[in-house]
Design a protein around this nucleic acid. Sequence first.
DNA 1: GTAAAATCACGAAACGTTTCATGATAAAAA
DNA 2: TTTTTATCATGAAACGTTTCGTGATTTTAC
Lengths: 332, 332
Amino acid sequence: MKKESSAPTMKDVAREAGVALGTVSKVVNGLPVGDSYKIRVEDAIQKLNYQVNSYAQGLKANKTYTVAVLVPNTTEPFFAALAYHINIVLMRQKYRMLLCCTDSDSALEQEYVTMAQQNKVDGIIGLTYNPNLVIEENTPFVAIDRSISAGIPCVASDNFGGGQLAAEKLADFGCKNVAFLRIGSSLSNEPNKRKAGFENGCLSRGLNYEMKILDDSEPYEKFEAFLEEHIQGGRLSFDGIFCVTDRLAFSVIQTLRRLNQRVPQDVQVIGYDGIRLFGNMDYVCSTIVQPLPEMAEMCVELLLRENMKVKPPLICLPVTYAYGGTTSESEK
Amino acid sequence: MKKESSAPTMKDVAREAGVALGTVSKVVNGLPVGDSYKIRVEDAIQKLNYQVNSYAQGLKANKTYTVAVLVPNTTEPFFAALAYHINIVLMRQKYRMLLCCTDSDSALEQEYVTMAQQNKVDGIIGLTYNPNLVIEENTPFVAIDRSISAGIPCVASDNFGGGQLAAEKLADFGCKNVAFLRIGSSLSNEPNKRKAGFENGCLSRGLNYEMKILDDSEPYEKFEAFLEEHIQGGRLSFDGIFCVTDRLAFSVIQTLRRLNQRVPQDVQVIGYDGIRLFGNMDYVCSTIVQPLPEMAEMCVELLLRENMKVKPPLICLPVTYAYGGTTSESEK
DNA sequence: GTAAAATCACGAAACGTTTCATGATAAAAA
DNA sequence: TTTTTATCATGAAACGTTTCGTGATTTTAC
């Protein structure tokens, strides 16, 4: 009895073409094979509509053709967009993405890393929060926005340059007194450099600036108080604010409007990330745009190219500024 | 020489425990095994930190433990949220999600379906647009929001009920003259029922209503003209608008404000989907919320439970109304 | 025309599981 | 105690690939 409805295998192709199993394998993998054989095999593949079983391949090669992507969640647009672009790059290379939403849970993050060490995935691309994540020497891991440890390459946008660019843009648009706003724990994350870059930009452009960094144990209330403190006679003492993310910028803009400050007439706001409404409409706010497609490409490249002699510890990719309605574009 | 750094296999466990291969397999799969054996095997598994290789399992069982999820993209928040919830349910059941972004491309959609038939995945959950998608009889497929063909179950929110609820809410909030707005091709999609439900609700509540359905060949411009046409002496002739999606509602609200109509004072707007800003902040607009966690659960259940005697052709899950700032909540 | 060298298809073995026929051991029956 | 039956661990075979030693065939050299 012939096989029922299950997919054709190499053996079926070999029988159909009248060649040996190994010959089919070579044709499938593009290894040199005599022309007459090659044609017969290709015809048989066409006829049977054969596709290789990558799980069997993986079993043999001790590979899974799967890469785990660790993000806190995929409901926040930035993480969703990141995962989206990584998925595209991986699929183009015949890899699968195992999407792991860690909910910023340190234990879960470690669990997924352990899983990778069990060879259930070929590598990990991770945007993680666990400060003591243990990653064994031989585990292929590429970090996003985090310097985890020596030997683990990190891909990030040019956070310092982005901060600087924000300051320059605010200066270009006529601001004199600006503020930097951030909420979040003070890990040694790459995005922290946005602050240093902004500071640098302010100094070189002669802007008065103030830095406000709030602990994330008491989020999204304190910054309102901070803004209120700086209102004298109905006027905010800042005419420009740089927020560490678009998400924060969005909240800040809402708060400013509640405090009767007009954006961008009274105060201009720049965020960071490049989030668009509904994924493809306008930018949520004027923003420093992260080059997500390029970052995704770079992560996968670093992870899968083993012939890379030495993995650079940090790769910064260039950012751009985009108008999103919360700045006055009259460059002087 | 012992094996180097590769993961321990069942054979290693068997050797460590001093039992046969098949015994380990039984323990791993929870089949009956003598107590003394069971303990020894479990200890060995602990000691070696063994995890089964599901790719080898899959090869043997001709299963992949992978489900393909077909969505147009994951940058739009609704699709992102859908994929997020499906991923969670699948991972809980030890399945992997293969995320396929079809870009609404009919050919790509068909390609992924073919792939599933090649046994590269165990089933498909698809939100597809190809009207003549060919799905073979024995391919496990669950559609979302689309009735594809007999034998293919469809999971959807209660679109009719949701439309009705929108009309009732607008009536509750004091509207008299309302409109339904939709842009999109007129496939026999489930979401089309939102219109019928809305109409039904309007009739039962005695609302004057108008339906406007625009072709998506000329999107997002015509509806502006439609709104302008209905402004006489600076006042819009509608005091309530139901939009088929939050995305459209958002555009409509922007346009209304541009036309100097105050939302919700002059005109109230209700959308559909339940999109939140940045995934977890406020709702984008007052909206009919789709029960995504329940829908995801139901999709996976329908797809993977083979002992289900007869698959229901359509499963509607209940929706709820949520306030999002674009309605006047003064229920009379 | 013969011998040596080069070419390349062949097919068995192995990857880590599951399954099942086999046979050893223990329990029940006589 | 001996025979029959029931129990259950054992380990070989198979899943669909890749790899590599073998040997048949062709090419080159003499």
